[in-house]
Simulated assay, not measured.
Amino acid sequence: MPSFHNKKQYTVAFYNLENLFDTYDDELTQDNEFLPDSVKKWTFKRYLNKLRKLGFAISQIGENETGFPPALVGLSEVENELVLRDLISSQHLAHIHYDFVHFDSPDERGIDVALLYNKKVFHKLKASRHALDIFNVDGEKDYTRDILHVSGLFDGEKVHVIVNHWPSRREGLEESNIKRMAASNKLIEIMETILYEEPEAKFIILGDFNDNPDTESIKNLVNNQDLFNPMEQVYSKSRGTTRHDFVWDLFDQIILSTSFFERIPGTLTYLKADIFDEDFLKLFRGPFKGEPFRTYVGTKYKGGYSDHFPVYLILHK
C-alpha cells in the first residue's frame, strides 16, 4: 500500500463523539451520569465498546477516496486526555500514527474539544486554547468549551487548524443565539490576530457549531473572513449530521480559507466535502430509521456510535 506522501490526497474530518467519558468520577465536573453506578450504568465494558466503534468509524472516514484514515480529525465531547489515549490505542486506530492536542476546558460537564493528527503527515508547531467570555440571561458566566488553535505543517505546508464546539440550543434558539454569535466573533478575533502576523495564513476551521450553514453566526464568520463553507452545498432537508424531531441539522462543519482553491504546485487544494453517513452508523429500522445510531437515548443504552455523523473533506496536492 502506498504511503500518504505517494498518494498526495488527504482526509480532514470532524466528529462529535457523544459524551466520550471514562468510568471514573471527576469531582471537578458534572460527570456523575457516566459512572458504573449511575442511572446510565456506564460500565467499563460499555466504554470499551464505544471506543472500538468510534475507532472503526474514524478509520473509515474518507477511506474510499484516499485509501487511508484521516490525516486530521477534530473531535468534540471528549472528557479528558485518558479517553483520547484509549481511543488512539483502540483496535482500529492503534496501527495509525495518531497523536492528539487537548486542553481541559472549564465546561461544567467536563467535555472538551481535541485534535487527532497523523504524525507522518502533520507536524505540530504550536497549540493554544481560547476561552469564550459569555454569560447566561441571569448574568452568571457560562463556562463552556474553549476554542482550540493548532498550527502545524500539513505535508510541509503551514496551516492553522481551529476546533470548535459552540454553545448549544438547550435554552432555546433565540435565547442561545447571542452565545454562538459571541463564539463567532471570538473566532474572528483569533483569526485576525494570526493574520496580523501571517497575512497569507491558511485556515481549516472544524466544529460542532450548533448552527446550520445558513445561520447568522456561521454567515458572520464566513463573510467577515472571506472563507468558503463547503457544507452549504451538502446541507438539505433530507440530509444532515444530527436529527431532532425528524428535522435534519448540519451543525458539524469544516470551513476553509479560499486560498485552498488556488492551484499552486506543491500546495494543498480543496477537492470535495461530504457527510460520512455510511449505513453502519445509522439506525436501520423503526420510526427513526436513517438517524445516527446513538450510544444512549435518554438513559436507555443503545450501544451505538454517536448522535452525530462525522463530516469530512478531501485535500490534494
Rank of each mutant, 00 (worst) to 15 (best):
I314W: 08
N212H: 00
T29A: 06
H308V: 01
F280W: 13
E174G: 07
L313Q: 07
Y47A: 01
G290R: 03
N164G: 05
T11N: 10
S259V: 05
S184I: 11
G74Q: 09
K302I: 13
K317I: 10
P213Y: 00
E65Q: 15
A182C: 02
Y296W: 06
F293P: 06
H95S: 15
D37G: 11
L148Y: 04
A114L: 10
G156M: 07
F100S: 10
K272E: 15
V311F: 00
G298K: 07
P230K: 06
S238T: 12
E65N: 10
N223P: 05
K289A: 09
A131G: 04
K282V: 06
K45H: 03
L132V: 04
I58G: 02
P292E: 05
F34D: 12
E197K: 09
L87Q: 03
S306Q: 12
R170D: 13
K119E: 13
D138N: 08
H102F: 15
A201D: 11
F261R: 12
V163N: 07
D26I: 06
L75Q: 08
P310I: 04
R180K: 07
D146R: 05
L82V: 12
A183Y: 05
I264P: 03
I58A: 02
L268Y: 04
D146C: 08
H95N: 15
L84Q: 11
H149Q: 00
S38H: 13
T295F: 02
T144Q: 03
F209W: 04
M191N: 01
L54K: 01
D37S: 15
D22F: 14
D104A: 09
L116E: 07
L256W: 10
D26W: 09
K120R: 14
L271P: 00
K141L: 08
A273M: 09
S259E: 13
G207V: 00
N212M: 04
L28W: 08
F100D: 07
L281N: 01
F122D: 09
E157K: 03
L187K: 02
G298Y: 08
Y98E: 12
T267D: 04
V159S: 01
S89I: 03
D214V: 00
D214R: 03
E291D: 10
P310R: 02
L153K: 08
S38Q: 14
K179M: 12
F4D: 08
L315P: 01
S128C: 09
K119V: 12
A201Q: 07
H316L: 06
F14H: 07
F34P: 12
M181Q: 14
S257H: 10
